[in-house]
Structure formats: structure tokens, C-alpha cells
């Protein structure tokens, strides 16, 4: 048995010596095939969900005076899902996104909080809050933008750009989903639909976040 395998091995070795180009080409083709298989069998990315090193880590702190009312403190919002939405009045995709966020927040129990979808399916969806962060936008312009779109959730100005930097934001709109335990569970790059957000939150809640 071992003699046969040894014979085969030596036959392969001599073939490789005789036709090195063919062997190299075959190896390259195999490597390319393996690469295609790896790429093709990766799990499909959820719409707009983008990589962020923050996912799975505690959300950076957001605290300060709100543009719309009482001061904001992300640390005080543990126990519910929080959407940290970066927006700007000059950002056209943000204009498209705002109605979706308003739709999501339409079941608000308190300003900035809503109970989610009442679709008669147990268990009830987890409570969600929204915090807006004005990205590279003067407070007055940001406030005007929020009012014009019917947003009622608290928002904070970020004149120094520090909050955006701590969240690794490249350009609005970007949204981070923060779980009840204060850990970032998703990052969405670009305008997001209410339905997508619901799906992400439901998935995170099911995962026990």
C-alpha cells in the first residue's frame, strides 16, 4: 500500500518536474477558484450595514446640551435600543432618510422614544430612542432641518467634530444602533429605511443584546 502511494508521489513529483508551467498554471487556477468560492459563499450583507470597529464595543459617550430641549446623556439611556443618527441640513440623502426615522418614531411613548411595531406578535418589540448628531452643521441650521422634517427626538450639535470622530463617521447620514447594554450592534452607512432598522433591532434583540 505504502509502496503504491510512494510510487504515485514520485510520479507526481516527476510530472511536476517535467511540466512546471502546467503545474504552476493549475495551482494558480485552483487558488483563483478557492478565492471565488470564498467570496461567493460569504453571508450576504444586510442592506447598507457597514463595517465599523465600534460594532461589539461600548458606544462612545454622547452628553451635552440638546438643540431641542433637556440635556442629552447616552449613558442614562441604558435599557433600551438607541439609534445615534448623524445628519446635516446640507446633506441631501439625510432629507430622504428623515421621513423614515419619523415613521419609525411614530409610535413614540415619550419624546424620542417609541414602542416599535404593534403587529400583534409576541413578544413586544423593545423600546427604541433616537439621538440626532449634527455633523459639520451650525446648530441653527440643524434645528431648522429637524423642525422642517417633523423630527421630535433630541439632537446635539457637534461643532468641534469630536463626536463624529469618536464614532468614526465619514459623512452623513450614518446611523449606529446601540443595544440596551450600551454596546454598538450595527452601523448603517447611508440613508436607512424604517423597515431595515426594525429588522436590525429585532435581530439584535433576538441575539440577546
Amino acid at each position: 500500500m505504502s509502496c503504491i502511494s510512494h510510487h504515485r508521489a514520485s510520479a507526481i513529483a516527476s510530472s511536476a518536474k517535467r511540466y512546471p508551467i502546467r503545474w504552476l498554471a493549475s495551482l494558480a487556477a485552483l487558488a483563483a477558484l478557492a478565492g471565488v468560492l470564498v467570496l461567493a459563499t460569504r453571508p450576504q450583507a444586510t442592506t447598507l450595514e457597514a463595517y465599523s470597529p465600534l460594532v461589539g464595543k461600548p458606544a462612545p459617550q454622547i452628553a451635552g446640551a440638546s438643540l431641542t430641549g433637556p440635556p442629552i446623556d447616552l449613558a442614562q439611556m441604558r435599557g433600551r435600543f438607541v439609534l445615534v443618527n448623524f445628519f446635516a441640513s446640507w446633506c441631501v440623502p439625510c432629507l430622504d432618510e428623515q421621513p423614515q426615522l419619523v415613521k419609525l418614531a411614530s409610535g413614540n411613548q415619550a419624546p424620542g422614544t417609541f414602542a416599535g411595531v404593534h403587529d400583534h406578535r409576541p413578544p413586544p418589540p423593545p423600546p427604541v430612542s433616537i439621538i440626532g448628531v449634527a455633523f459639520d452643521d451650525p446648530a441653527s441650521a440643524a434645528l431648522g432641518f429637524l423642525r422642517s422634517t417633523g423630527a421630535t427626538w433630541p439632537a446635539i450639535a457637534d461643532p468641534s467634530g469630536k463626536i463624529a470622530l469618536h464614532y468614526g463617521v465619514r459623512g452623513p447620514p450614518e446611523t449606529f444602533v446601540v443595544a440596551p447594554d450600551g454596546v454598538v450592534v450595527a452601523h448603517i452607512d447611508g440613508p436607512v429605511a424604517a423597515r431595515t432598522l426594525r429588522a436590525i433591532i429585532a435581530r439584535a434583540a433576538a441575539d440577546g443584546a
Partner: peptide, 10 residues
């Protein structure tokens, strides 16, 4: 860009 200026400051 504002993000670049923020990073430069940092």
C-alpha cells in the same frame, strides 16, 4: 474638510 481638520487637531 471638517473631519480632516478635527483629526489634525486631535
Amino acid at each position: 474638510a471638517s473631519t480632516a481638520v478635527t483629526i489634525r487637531r486631535l
